[in-house]
Amino acid sequence: MELGISLAILGAGLAVGFAGAGSVLGVSAAGQAGAGVISEDPDKFGKVLVLEALPATQGIYGFLVAFLILQKIGLFGGEIVALTMSNGLSLLFASLPIAIAGFSSGWYQGKVSASGMKIVATQPKAMGKAIILSAMVETYAVLGLLISILLIFGITV
């Protein structure tokens, strides 16, 4: 296998690994806070779940980008594309926006979600605001995803 292919695979790994790690940190922080709310108030499970699920999307974005890269280099059935070194590097770099933005936004969105549990605990009716606060952080993962996708589509191999 050429080095180009390996670099592209590294890119896919970074995308799914880092964005996923961000989501892991985020969802677990929100989940811990949610467990506290639920143990006092089991009726709030639905609300807590929504807030906990928010930082989960970064992992999916990373997965998505990884998948696009793997598909681009033909790892799913069909023939593996002969990738030049520079093509491989390009794909690797293309994965970075979502890898970095996904990791940090997943993590910190989780923190906002965990703090948002305060709203769920004390003012459940204002929960929509907690969701919006948390979703603000996600914006940057979405932008990272967008650029990663456009870059991958744009690279001709």
Partner: peptide, 15 residues
């Protein structure tokens, strides 16, 4: 900010 619509749509179809 509306560019997110593209990203979200692509996510659904690709997944």
């Amino acid at each position: 900010s509306y560019s997110r619509l593209l990203a979200l749509g692509l996510t659904t179809s690709i997944i």
